Simulated assay, not measured.
Amino acid sequence: MDLRIQGPGPTSPFLSARDLFETEHDLSLPVYVRLRDDPDERTWAGHYEDRHVLNISRQAASSAMARELALHEFAHMARYEEDHPSHTQSTEEVLYLALAGKSVERRQLSHCYQIANHMKDIYADDITLSVGPGEKLLSFLESSLATAVADRPETPSRSGLQRLSASADPDITAVNAAFALALAERHDLVGPDESHRLYDLAHAAAMDAPAVDTMAFRRRFRDLGQETDASTYRKALVNATRSYVTSNSAAAD
């Protein structure tokens, strides 16, 4: 695996991630790591004819999660090179199939893209967690969900219950909670007794988003077939998208 780090900054997390990744996988194209100054720049992978590019802020590259972030993006690159359906399926095509004839809020549309990203991440992290430990990822999922789920403020929610989510949109927070649980369960990062704090946080998120069937999304994400073809994957994504928009529309009515 040809790794090329561009710009001043830490190199050890990327080299360590490469060493882990290469225990079971390889990439045909070189990987350019582009360190960016903007601390709010999210970590993401770009794919081109002659290379992959891992974009990451210097702040993220210096964080405790740097190696895990890099390993996750390497996994996306591997899925892209193997033409995995989760990484070749057009999200726009799925939205057209799932939402034809429906009126959808811009907020809901952005959530549909997030659902598609979660399904891509499930398959990328099947690789990530096959070569690296999951403890840091589990802590990251817990911390991220805890940030979105806050103490009850004074104003009631649309369900008549006190809101449990803070500034984050409660509907997508519930979907994110479902993803976190699904990934943890898919890779046995939590025990069967559901005693991990992640379950309490997911319950809190679900209480604040009654229109979202959090447990159903948990099953959708967790039970995605390890091996899938383009048709099966497209159907799963269409069904997930349609389910989310339909349930939200019914709640609004």
Score class of each variant (00 low, 15 high):
Asp83Arg: 15
Phe21Arg: 02
Glu73Leu: 13
Pro8Val: 10
Met77Pro: 02
Thr155Ser: 08
Leu161Asn: 13
His118Cys: 02
Thr88Ser: 14
Ala182Met: 06
Asp40Leu: 11
Asp169Phe: 07
Glu24Val: 09
Leu69Ser: 04
Leu181Ser: 04
Ala45Asn: 07
Pro133Met: 02
Ala206Asn: 05
Leu54Gln: 08
Leu99Arg: 05
Gly9Leu: 05
Asp193Thr: 11
Asp37Gly: 11
Gly101Asp: 06
Glu142Asp: 05
Met65His: 09
Thr214Met: 13
Ser86Phe: 02
Ser90Thr: 08
Ser63Ala: 11
Gly134Thr: 08
Glu24Asp: 11
Glu22Thr: 13
Ala250Cys: 05
Pro170Arg: 12
Pro10Cys: 04
Ala100Gln: 12
Asp50Thr: 10
Ile115Phe: 12
Ala252Phe: 05
Met207Phe: 04
Leu35His: 11
Thr91Asn: 14
Arg79Cys: 15
Ile172Ser: 00
Ala184Met: 00
Asp125Arg: 15
Met77Lys: 02
Ala178Asn: 03
Gln108Glu: 15
Leu141Phe: 09
Val33Glu: 04
Ala216Val: 07
His72Ile: 01
Asp253Trp: 08
Arg218Ser: 01
Tyr244Leu: 14
Thr23Lys: 10
Met77Arg: 02
Tyr123Asn: 12
Gly9Val: 13
Ala209Ile: 04
Asn239Gly: 04
His52Ile: 08
Ser143Trp: 05
Thr173Ile: 08
Thr241Cys: 14
Arg152Phe: 07
Ala230Thr: 10
Gln162Val: 03
Gly134Asn: 12
Ile5Leu: 07
Pro13Glu: 04
Ser195Thr: 06
His47Ala: 14
Thr155Lys: 13
Val33Arg: 11
Met77His: 05
Met1Phe: 09
Ala182His: 03
Asn248Phe: 02
Trp44Gln: 09
Ala204Ser: 13
Gly9Ser: 06
Ala66Ile: 10
Ser16Glu: 11
Arg67Phe: 01
Val104Phe: 09
Glu93Tyr: 09
Tyr233Glu: 09
Phe179Val: 01
Arg79Gly: 08
Ala174Pro: 08
Tyr32Pro: 00
Asp223Arg: 13
Gly134Ile: 03
Glu82Asp: 12
Arg42Thr: 14
Leu164Gln: 11
Asp193Ala: 12
Ser90Asp: 12
Pro133Tyr: 04
Asp2His: 13
Val149Gly: 05
Arg163Lys: 14
Asp229Gly: 13
Leu109Cys: 06
Thr173Lys: 05
Ala177Asp: 08
Glu142Cys: 02
Leu137Cys: 00
His196Glu: 06
Val245Thr: 05
Leu224Trp: 10
Ala211Ile: 11
Tyr32Lys: 14
Tyr123Val: 04
Gly7Gln: 11
Ala177Asn: 09
His187Ile: 01
Tyr123Gln: 12
Asn176Trp: 07
Ile127Asn: 07
Val131Asn: 02
Val238Trp: 13
Ala78Val: 03
Thr214Ala: 13
Ser12His: 09
Ala252Val: 06
Ala17Glu: 06
Ala116Gln: 06
His118Gly: 02
Thr11Cys: 07
Met65Trp: 06
Glu185Cys: 04
Glu41Trp: 01
Leu129Tyr: 08
Gly225Glu: 15
Ser157Phe: 07
Gly101Phe: 14
Gly160Ala: 12
Ala116Phe: 07
Val212Gln: 07
